[in-house]
Computed example of a mutant assay.
Amino acid sequence: MLRPFFHTITDLSADAELVRARRYGIIVVRKSQLEAIHFRPWPKMISRLEVMTIGRYVHQRSRGDYCWLYYNAPLTAPDFLSLVYVVSGKETTWRTFRTALATLDEVARLRNAAAIVTDVSNPQISERNLSRNGWEPHCAHLPGRNYIKRFYGDYPRLAAGTHRREVLAS
């Protein structure tokens, strides 16, 4: 079966096979609700220059409560996810950001990923906040602030009697 290069889903449970099959995606959350996951045929490539210039410019001028998380499942490390880039509006709430992160955790669970790795370039994101959300320092010998969230089969638990979509929307 031929799949389109770009594909969009709105229900993780119904489209779990597609989530497992596609390596590159954008999680889109608006007003604390999962809107969609858009799959891409290639990974998101990012540079520190882009983060420091275009990223900050867009964040300062964009309105709305939204968050986009770009993630990759690299060919060289298929058991890992990489949180590559986050785009948010100036009015983005903590709840919207947490919903996006919970969705990424669910993608990791569906893909049976061992961990999620990221390089945190925003100095406003504290080590304490990262630690509270399950992230720990990783690869101290590399430049930047590298973090990892390990699962190794122990994924965040859903509340009993709660559907995944409800958890992701909370």
Rank of each mutant, 00 (worst) to 15 (best):
V29K: 10
V29Y: 00
R30T: 10
R30K: 10
L34T: 07
E35Q: 13
E35T: 07
A36N: 09
F39K: 01
R40D: 04
P41M: 02
K44I: 00
I46E: 07
S47A: 01
L49S: 04
L49K: 08
E50V: 15
I54L: 14
G55H: 02
R56K: 15
Y57T: 11
Y57L: 15
V58T: 03
H59Y: 15
Q60S: 14
Q60D: 13
R61V: 14
S62M: 02
R63V: 11
G64Q: 01
C67A: 11
L69Q: 02
Y71S: 09
A73G: 06
A77G: 08
P78V: 03
D79T: 15
S82W: 07
K90C: 00
E91T: 04
T93G: 10
W94V: 04
T96Q: 08
T99M: 01
A100K: 08
L101G: 15
A102K: 12
T103F: 02
T103L: 07
T103D: 02
L104V: 12
D105A: 14
L110D: 12
N112E: 13
N112Y: 10
A113L: 08
A113D: 05
I116W: 10
D119A: 09
V120S: 03
V120L: 08
Q124E: 09
I125Q: 04
L130W: 02
L130Q: 08
R132G: 12
G134D: 06
W135M: 14
E136A: 12
C139A: 15
P143D: 01
G144I: 09
R145A: 11
R145D: 11
N146M: 03
Y152L: 14
G153S: 11
G153C: 03
G153F: 06
